[in-house]
């Protein structure tokens, strides 16, 4: 008799546990719906207010870096950490976000000036330096996302490797394959964990395959778009 009673109690407990699992999955579903609803319903002002709390690191201020930084500043990113060692030259103006009267200026400072003219609320930390492996942690450890915007493949590799070993938890958005013109639809974004690669992954810059504003701009803005998606997915 006692045994039967005990079994009865046990089965009731089991029911409670099953019930709890149900509640959990229902709650999860409701939370997802809530998130989805919020995503659809956000106004630009609400998006900008969320982005205003974010900090993005940009390694390089050339074709990818300057265009990506400008796109992010326009939509209200709070802080940008930008590092580059180069100087604006006439050949850069076919794709980089600089002006003729800025030739000879350091790219990071010229870019900071341009961003200030577009959105003075975006705080730019401009670092005039050639990024080495040991700079990666001190420069970018406080960032929510890092953008790889170098020109040379060996520099890109250095940054990706440094991020994998030193900052494995910060999402990294790279650009790779953007030379020439045309072939819109060969440009994609591929993802490996929290590493994203935007580009056609094929067209290397050369004398006859130069980097030019339209295609470089597509990849730079794709990187910016990926950054926004990463930043907003958990908000």
């Amino acid at each position: 008799m006692i045994l039967i009673k005990l079994q009865h109690v046990a089965s009731r407990f089991k029911n409670v546990f099953i019930f709890r699992d149900h509640i959990k999955s229902i709650m999860k579903f409701l939370f997802l719906l809530y998130k989805l609803g919020r995503l659809i319903q956000r106004t630009f002002e609400q998006i900008a207010a969320l982005l205003n709390t974010c900090k993005v690191g940009i390694a390089g201020a050339g074709g990818l870096g300057s265009n990506c930084a400008v796109a992010l500043s326009r939509i209200g990113i709070g802080e940008l950490v930008i590092a580059d060692f180069d100087v604006v030259n006439a050949g850069n103006l076919n794709r980089q976000y600089f002006f003729r009267d800025q030739i000879g200026k350091k790219k990071v400072f010229a870019l900071r000036d341009n961003i200030q003219r577009i959105n003075p609320d975006c705080q730019v930390f401009a670092h005039d330096l050639k990024i080495c492996e040991e700079h990666v942690f001190p420069l970018f450890s406080g960032c929510d996302v890092i953008v790889e915007a170098f020109d040379a493949a060996d520099q890109k590799k250095m940054l990706v490797e440094a991020c994998i070993t030193r900052l494995p938890n910060i999402p990294l958005v790279c650009g790779s394959g953007l030379a020439g013109y045309g072939s819109n639809n060969s440009i994609t974004t591929q993802q490996w964990g929290n590493i994203y690669i935007c580009g056609d992954q094929n067209n290397e810059v050369s004398e006859t395959l130069p980097p030019m504003a339209p295609r470089v701009g597509i990849v730079a803005n794709m990187q910016a778009n990926q950054v926004v998606e990463i930043l907003l997915q958990n908000k």
């Binding site: 493949a153 990706v160 790779s176 953007l178 030379a179 964990g193 094929n202 810059v205 980097p211």
Partner: peptide, 10 residues
Amino acid sequence: VMILHLISGG
């Protein structure tokens, strides 16, 4: 295994 390749240009 992740094997990614990086191409010059930026």
